[in-house]
Design a protein around this nucleic acid. Structure first.
Lengths: 217, 217
DNA sequence: CTAACGTTTGTCCAATCGGTCAAAAATTTG
DNA sequence: CAAATTTTTGACCGATTGGACAAACGTTAG
């Protein structure tokens, strides 16, 4: 007889066997691949199951509903995704801090493009599943860091601007290389669009955020 | 009896009656709304038909397949979407030209957010339907404008950087306010996230691209 | 009026969807 | 070993999907 609801209690304590750990991980990896390229509604359980190398009922033994997979994925994502911003620290040289924040975000776009696209998909569709997190946890964190940046501006360490839009512009420019990767590569062509494109981007962004475009007097 | 295939010949000349013109326009408007928030696979013909105020078979009388609607939408989009870049002109002050390009792109993000999201959805999913356009028409245009920008750099009118990544950064920062609008508003909150957010963004971006963040000596 | 043509809809269909279930297979436990 | 438990699967279900079709309806030209 089937050993049923002991696995996906969801809210309860996750007492899991070794196999359950491994298989759940396998499913999440496959789901990340599928969800990030097709969106939630555009992805099917069959696709995920096939990518994970198992049958659909077997997948549903580990995750009761399609939404549970997506939810688990999103929860994990947000933690690692905001880590670079959390590291933005009041101690240390402001310009250096910002530069390394940009570098870290660009590295994440390079190393975890699927996670970036998963997030972008969710936001594009109106963030129906993570809206509370955006208005809560995320807003709190950004407001906090905006205050730090404002302190730097008052101290004359960096130019005075809108800290919130500064953070947006860092998000936009770095995540662009993950979310719009196909377009970036198509436009750059085989030569400039190769592996070196992230170093080119890093150099450009560093200069942009440091000096802007005005020619050196 | 039905007056059949005279409407959706697709490749042939579009000899259309007044009603056909109007209804097709109605459908495209509804489809833009639906596709831009749900993606292609996530949208259903029924949704579009309902949004257009007609029955599904009636919609399919004007567009034979779901894909035909999407294709028509994308074709129109690309023309208007790239118009600002086409206007980027060699005559005139380079810094002014770039500034007004950024302003125009930001206005498009404000006035046509659905178009921006439709495009973002397509790229996110690997641009399966417009890849040839990216590697062809788009690349040609960008290469051409990159050459113009390079000329400005050689003439010492703007700082030397990578013109392609400069264009990417303008796309990213401006379209961010359409594609990630939900997140932007959630983070800014009711006060700063109101209608004034685009003016704040315009001010910030102007300063970023002009002077960067380095404090004024 | 009527014939021809353009428009609209109700009905239907095969394929696919998310998810269930019971039974088989594999594994762990004693 | 055998019993208990966990894991896997084939078969199945109702709902939804994109699309086909013929009949009904509306409009216009002769």
């Amino acid at each position: 007889m089937g050993g049923l609801a002991t696995v996906n209690t969801g809210t309860e304590a996750p007492r899991r066997t070794r196999i359950q750990q491994e298989k759940r991980e396998l499913i999440l990896e496959a789901a990340l691949e599928v969800f990030s390229t097709n969106g939630f509604r555009g992805s099917t359980i069959d696709q995920i199951a096939e990518a994970a190398g198992m049958s659909k009922p077997n997948l549903l033994y580990y995750f009761r509903r399609k939404e549970d997979i997506h939810e688990t994925l999103m929860q994990r994502l947000l933690d690692t995704w905001l880590a670079p911003l959390r590291e933005l620290d009041d101690i240390g040289d402001p310009m250096t801090e910002l530069r390394s924040y940009i570098r870290r975000k660009l590295e994440m776009a390079r190393d975890f493009p699927r996670e970036s696209r998963l997030f972008a998909n969710e936001i594009l569709q109106g963030a129906p599943r993570i809206m509370p997190l955006l208005a809560g946890e995320l807003k709190t964190l950004v407001d906090e860091k905006a205050a730090v940046i404002k302190g730097w501006m008052r101290a004359g360490k960096i130019a005075r601007t809108d800290p919130w839009h500064l953070i947006f512009s860092i998000w936009a420019t770095t995540q662009h290389y993950a979310d719009f990767d196909v377009q970036v590569r198509a436009v750059l062509g085989p030569n400039r669009g190769g592996d070196g494109r992230f170093e080119d981007a890093a150099r450009f962004l560093e200069q942009l955020f440091l000096d802007g475009l005005k020619p050196k007097g």
